[in-house]
Structure formats: structure tokens, C-alpha cells
Design a protein around this nucleic acid. Structure first.
Lengths: 333, 333
DNA sequence: CGGAGAAGGTAAAACGTTCTACTGGTGAGG
DNA sequence: CCTCACCAGTAGAACGTTTTACCTTCTCCG
């Protein structure tokens, strides 16, 4: 209640409000003695700057928005952690929006972000139609795409190379001696699933094998339960020598079902996941996987965004593509 | 850039800015015809209210702060999802802070929240010293404790009964025929760990067993790796008939080590976790666990907070205690 | 017919900062 | 001695809303 303003600080330090503002924002402009006096007054009165007043007058805030598809998925959570870390280092606050896969919810979130006059928005787009992001940019809100290649030159984007990741995964399985490989995947309308498949095909071709021999098992969701069902299908129709799953949750489900059926992993079937979530290393047979630099993804995206905000003149838009890293564990040994 | 203000809307609709404000905040006060005219103008101009100006003048914002200990832990992530959902329904934005277990980082986050003049703060406190929260309240910022019993009558709190949870878990193990039980736990300075242990002891007493027979294995962290080490100790010193772990990550580590050593679960040793994270059901032997209503925890805490903000007169502070639910799976069958 | 009260609206003063233009004062260069 | 530049700081006008006090009309009722 007893909210203390810059004026009271000024009065106590015997200066004008403008000088207090300078101490806060451009300390070098103020003589050392005065600066100290003001700082002491701030401390004694417990003054906290009113962010809204500052935003209103200065024309920009010290907040960024983060809109993700599913905050419950460890992949996005780690991105969020990276974003929060970098933003916090730079003195920015993060406003979180969870679109839960719903386009209308995403739009509502973007609207709230626009009202809050965030400096910029980090978004993992819920679909391929990015036109609504232009309306944000028209308002002077920078946008950085996360986990999306970002085909346009007028915006930054940060992603992981899913084609290369899929290729590396399947190449690893082939190097282990497998010739017949199955790909257990979520809906191929999901960009990540489709690109990892493309990589898998490339790996087969590079090894001089017929790409048509890649057996595709497409599931409705990317969950452990869906993986169990997919493994059931494979058991019925005849097992391949190796299975590549589009994410670790699918792989965990496959693994569980195979083990229960008495199939030995990796002796009978080699298995790879994707994402390298924490639990991949903790499963009964530890799971080989493709590690993505999620934390780094969040940090870098935030860095690009803040650079775009702070140096609008010199900022060059970038599309940064990270590489996934193969982590070999028992399931492919 | 072309930021359109309430004045331009007013001009286009042929009314005063005050009327536009009324349409926005108290539509009932405006004649239907005028209201429609203003709404159309808003739509045509693409007007978006300037949240900061609104906050500045009205004296309160439409944002709440959320400070959690570890955004990477699924337990907190699910809470965050619940918070975001409820806040979004009520038109509030959520500002996220991750304290990462560091007290100084938590304080920095709270400071940022104070600057943003959030309406209230939801916090899973990083330690037991809650004095710093009083300073927020002095500023008129409501505080609700999350996953903390909240012993004080002047604030709301939402938690899950860890004593009862620990009791139920061990009672379940005893009902399965075990007499010698081990408790694998993180640091007992963590409130949750200590209270679950207390519940475990109560269950032993209730069954007429000597509480001293509860073998305590305390680890430095609550991770799968720590669980592996703890299981190693147990294998060396002699296995109990049942193991209760303070969380699922520990339990997954224990499970993995036991299976590798050829121990059959649950035939040789029964095993229980806590939290019922998604992966509990997906492990090689599916894991029995205590399910906590995390999503609900987040929703309820937010509801209490917004109630406190919106009805400061009639609001009664509450301490809500949820109960954990036993989920029996293969590991205790 | 007079007055009270409601309905629908307006004008203008806040809210707490930041920023621009300005004022003295001081020292260096010509 | 004059000018110019610079330093340190000030006064006061913004920024875009909300809110208060106030002004007209109308309607209703005794």
C-alpha cells in the first residue's frame, strides 16, 4: 500500500525526479556523490520502480512472451528453462503462455501478450500458418520462432536439424548390423516426424539399401501407450532387426512391450529413441537416443530476440540450426 | 508502430475516451447503440488496450507471478500448467520465475515481480524462511503458498498431505505381506521427505510393528542416479522385502539396479514410488506410486489468489490440504 | 407543474515514469 | 575577454488509461 515513488526518493536525496531516473537508467550521467546519495535514499525507502509507468513512458517493456505447445512435455519444459534463465540474466521477465495444441488458445495468449506490450515473443508455432505473427510485428513486437526452421528472411528462427538427426539415428542402427529397420512415428503431418523419416530414408540410401524397406508404423499420438500398440503390431507382423522411434516416449512403450514378450533388446532387436529425455537413461534397458540441445535452444532464441530488441539497427536476422547428438546406450549395443 | 489508442477509437465512434473505457470495463453502463458503435470502431482499428497504462492508472495489473523451485521437474511443470490454465480463463497473464533452488535467484525473481506490479504471487517456497514474503504483502501483493502447508492464518496455502501419503504407501506395502521395509529418500531437511517418512513410521506402528525397523537410506539428491546408488547399498547390506521411495525418479533408479542384479520385482522385493509421473507407468515393471493432484493444486491456488485479489473484503484465507491417491501397479502386485 | 432521480455521456485530473529542452557553472582555446 | 563545449542537474510535458465530478436530458410521480 505504502507505495513509494520516485518523487519521494528525489525529495529525500535532495534532487529532482529526473536525476533519480538517470541514476536508475544511466548511472554514468550522474556525479558519483549524488549517485550514492540517491542510491541510499532508494534503499532506505525500499523504493521499487513501477514497471508499468516505465513501460508507458519509455514505450517498451522489460518482458518477453513465451508461447509453447505443451508445457507438460519435457522437451518444451527444458526450452522454457533456458528461456527463463537467459531472460532473467538480462533483467527481463517471462510471460508464459501454453497453447495446449489449440489454435484459439494460442491466439488468446498472443492477444494477452500484445496487451502487456511485451518486447518480443518466442513461439513454438502450433501450426504452419504464421500470418498471425505478422500482426504482432506490425505492432513492433519482435518474434523469434523456436524449433521451427523459419523459412522467411525477415525473422529469426532457432531449430534442430531433424533430417540429419534421423539420418544419424538410422546410420547408427545400420552400423550395428541391422538391414531391416522400422520407423515408429507420430502423425507424419508433424514436421519433426516427417523430417526425421526423411533422414532415415537418406541413411538407407547412403548404405546402398532400398529405402522402401523402411517399415513405417504411424501412430496417432507420441505417447508411451501409442508405442506399446505399435510394438504389438510389429510383434504380430514380424519383427525387424532394428526400430527407430520418433521420440523417447514411443520408444519406452515399444521397449516395455518387447521385453514383456520375451524379446531381448538389443540382442534380438536394436532400439533407438529421440529427444534423450531424462528417463531414457533410467529405463530397464537404457535407451539410445538423439540428444537435442533444448536448454541451449531456449537460451539462444532469447538471445536473438533481445539482440533484435536492443539493436534494431544492426541486428541481422538469423536462422540457427543446431545438430542433435547421438547417445549410444544399451539398447543398441 | 502504428499503435492505436483509445482516443482514436473515441474519435471514430464519435464519443469521448471515457465512454470507450466504459465499454471496455463496464459495458452495462453504456447504451447498447453506442456500445456497438464503439465495439465496431475497436475492431476496425485493431485497437489493443495498453496494459501498462491501464495498470498505472487503475492501480493494479492483470498478471500474477509464479515462482517455482525447479521448472524441469514434472511435478512443478504440472502445477504450472494448472496455474496457467486457470489464470488464462480469468484473463490473467502468468509471469514465470524459476528459482532453481537458489535463494538469491528466488529473491531476484520476486523483485522483478514486484516491479511488474503483479496482482499476486504463487510460490513454492525454496526454504522455510517466509519473512521475505511479508515484504510483498506490505506492497499490497497477495501471496499464496503452493505445496506448503502454510502455518499462518493471514495467508492462503495449498498442499498435499505428505504424512497421509507416506502412511498409505507403506500400509499398502505391509498389506502385501512385507514386514521389513526400507525408505529411500532425499535429504530429510526437505519437508516433503521428512513428512513422508513420518507417515511411513505411523503405518508401521498402526500395524503393530516396531518403527525402528524402517531402514532409512538418505541420498543427496532426488534423481534416478541417486536411486541407483541407494539400491547398490541395499544389495550389499541385504535386501528388505519392500522399498518405499520418496519420489519416482529415485524409484526408477532403484528398479533398474535391482533388475540388473537379477532381483525380481515384485516377487523378491515390492517397490513404491511417489508423484506418479508419466514414466512411472512406462517403466519395465510398471511402478506403483502415490498420485498427487498437481494440476488441481495449481488451479486451486490460482483460484484462491484471484479471489483474494477480487474480493479483498469477503475473502477468507484458507489452508487447503489435498490427499494423494494410491496407484497400484505391477511393482507391488 | 415542479422536483427527484436515473440514464448516458463528457471533460479533465490523475497514475509514476522518462525524455526533451533548458539553465547555470566551469574550463579550454583562440 | 569572448566563445564554445561540456558537465550536472532541473522543470515540465508527455505516455494511454481510468476515474471523479459534473452536465444534460428524460421519465416518473405526487
Amino acid at each position: 500500500m505504502a507505495t513509494v515513488s520516485i518523487k519521494e526518493v528525489a525529495a529525500r536525496a535532495g534532487v529532482s525526479p529526473g536525476t533519480v531516473s538517470n541514476v536508475l537508467n544511466r548511472p554514468a550521467k550522474v556525479a558519483p556523490g549524488t549517485r550514492e546519495r540517491v542510491r541510499r535514499a532508494i534503499h532506505e525507502l525500499g523504493f521499487v520502480r513501477h514497471g508499468s509507468a516505465s513501460t508507458l513512458r519509455a514505450g517498451h517493456s522489460r518482458t518477453v512472451g513465451l508461447s509453447v505447445i505443451d508445457i507438460g512435455n519435457p522437451f518444451f519444459t527444458e526450452i522454457a528453462a533456458g528461456v527463463e534463465e537467459m531472460a532473467s540474466e538480462r533483467g527481463y521477465a517471462v510471460i508464459l503462455g501454453n497453447s495446449a495444441g489449440s489454435r484459439t488458445k494460442e491466439e488468446r495468449n498472443l492477444r494477452v501478450l500484445a496487451e502487456q506490450r511485451v518486447r518480443g515473443v518466442l513461439i513454438t508455432p502450433s501450426d504452419q500458418d504464421l500470418a498471425r505473427l505478422d500482426r504482432l510485428r506490425e505492432r513492433g513486437i519482435s518474434v523469434v520462432l523456436v524449433d521451427h526452421p523459419g523459412h522467411r528472411p525477415d525473422q529469426c528462427a532457432v531449430a534442430v536439424d531433424d533430417v540429419a538427426g534421423g539420418r544419424a539415428a538410422v546410420a547408427h542402427l545400420l552400423a550395428g548390423g541391422a538391414r531391416h529397420v522400422a520407423y515408429v512415428t507420430g502423425p507424419l503431418t508433424i514436421r519433426q516426424c516427417a523430417e526425421r523419416r526423411q533422414g532415415a530414408l537418406a541413411a538407407l540410401e547412403a548404405a546402398g539399401l532400398d529405402p522402401d524397406r523402411l517399415e513405417i508404423v504411424e501412430t496417432a499420438a507420441m505417447t508411451a501407450r501409442a508405442g506399446e500398440r505399435a510394438a504389438g503390431d510389429l510383434l504380430r507382423d514380424g519383427l525387424p532387426e532394428a526400430i527407430f522411434c520418433a521420440n523417447d516416449l514411443l520408444a519406452l512403450g515399444v521397449l516395455r512391450t518387447l521385453l514383456q514378450a520375451g524379446v531381448r533388446v538389443p540382442d534380438d532387436v536394436a532400439l533407438m529413441g529421440y529427444d534423450d529425455i531424462d528417463f531414457a537413461a533410467a529405463s530397464a534397458v537404457s535407451l539410445s537416443s538423439m540428444r537435442q540441445p533444448t536448454h541451449q535452444l531456449g537460451r539462444t532464441a532469447t538471445e536473438l530476440l533481445l539482440d533484435e530488441c536492443d539493436n534494431p539497427g544492426t541486428h541481422a536476422h538469423q536462422h540457427i540450426m543446431f545438430q542433435a547428438e547421438l547417445v549410444a546406450r544399451e539398447s543398441t549395443r
